[in-house]
Nucleic acid binder design. Structure first.
Length: 290
DNA sequence: GCGTCCAGGTCTACC
DNA sequence: GGTAGACCTGGACGC
């Protein structure tokens, strides 16, 4: 039996700017229908899964589900979390208010970076973004969902822990990341590691980053990307994409040291990671009809 | 068709 | 703490 839920949205929320905030909307089990502006996802409570579609209608978000097998509260919480509906960006917009080059971010209501319902899923996906093309990232994540997930949902740590290194190499095509996935999944499944706790921890950002980097396969870039996804933006998460965009936009297409990039965004303080991301992806947001 | 490069980096050994 | 070299994959590119 199909089901439909509604969610009130904050005044400064833009559905399109959020789903276009970065590539996560393209990673399974997310899928974006750009023609009709509908974001689909396969929700899961660990035991059951249900395909759903989220879209904007009459100033609200509507969530249409294939059935009602998962509690409404769980679905609504996942949507609120993924679309960052409860994020307070007032301070972020205040930090760029006097900056002519960055003022568009408030105008277009940019800054909410779409994320997965769980930190576990974001952690695995982030590891899939390292040292490879975006196409290969999408392929690895797709394979995980198809071959380890239940009914097209993202796989649980328990499911991933049941597979061996050879499976990840041969079926997921994860290459040298394969032993990292086995080790991580076993630690999370056993309770030795709880990535979800990173959302609410009181640890200072630098200490949390150290914790994240204890996961094999997570270095500076991956940790800082994850920090953004748990709501901390004081790391730049520099990767080849951001560096390349910075050289084009602010350095006359010439390569420069990371320290120069860091100096450029230093004035934005605790929001610098979000400012650089929005600054370098303006053309993505700009192509939407907001 | 083949070789090389490199993409939303990280790890280890060594200094 | 800084650096060199190795590491999977697959698409783009030059020849």
């Amino acid at each position: 039996m199909r089901k439909s839920l509604e969610i009130e949205i904050p005044e400064n929320f833009s559905f399109r700017a959020t789903v276009y905030s970065h590539g996560w909307s393209e990673l399974a089990p997310f899928a974006l229908d750009e023609e009709n502006w509908r974001l689909s996802y396969v929700f899961s409570d660990g035991k059951r899964s249900v395909p759903g579609v989220v879209f904007e209608e009459s100033g609200r978000l509507r969530v249409e589900l294939a059935n009602g097998s998962i509690k409404d509260e769980k679905i609504l919480a996942d949507v609120r979390h993924s679309l960052r509906l409860d994020d307070d960006l007032d301070e972020f917009y205040a930090s760029i208010a006097a900056d002519e080059q960055m003022a568009w971010m408030a105008h277009y209501r940019a800054g909410r970076l779409v994320r997965s319902p769980t930190v576990w899923e974001d952690l695995v996906k982030t590891m899939c973004t390292t040292n490879c093309s975006w196409g290969l990232t999408k392929s690895m994540v797709r394979n995980l969902v198809d071959k380890v997930g239940t009914k097209q949902a993202f796989p649980t740590a328990e499911a991933m822990a049941s597979m061996d290194e050879a499976f990840y190499r041969e079926e997921i095509r994860a290459g040298y990341r394969s032993p990292y996935f086995v080790e991580l999944a076993q630690k999370v499944a056993s309770g030795e590691l709880d990535p979800q706790s990173w959302l609410a921890t009181d640890l200072p950002t630098l200490d949390l980053k150290k914790e994240m980097k204890k996961v094999k396969g997570v270095g500076d870039y991956a940790a800082e990307n994850l920090l953004k996804l748990v709501g901390r933006y004081d790391g730049l998460a520099l990767d080849s994409f951001l560096r390349g965009q910075f050289y084009k936009t602010h350095n006359k297409e010439k390569v420069c040291p990371d320290k120069k990039i860091e100096r450029h965004y230093k004035k934005y303080g605790q929001w610098r990671g979000l400012v650089i991301w929005c600054d370098m992806t303006e053309r993505w947001i700009g192509k939407t009809t907001l």
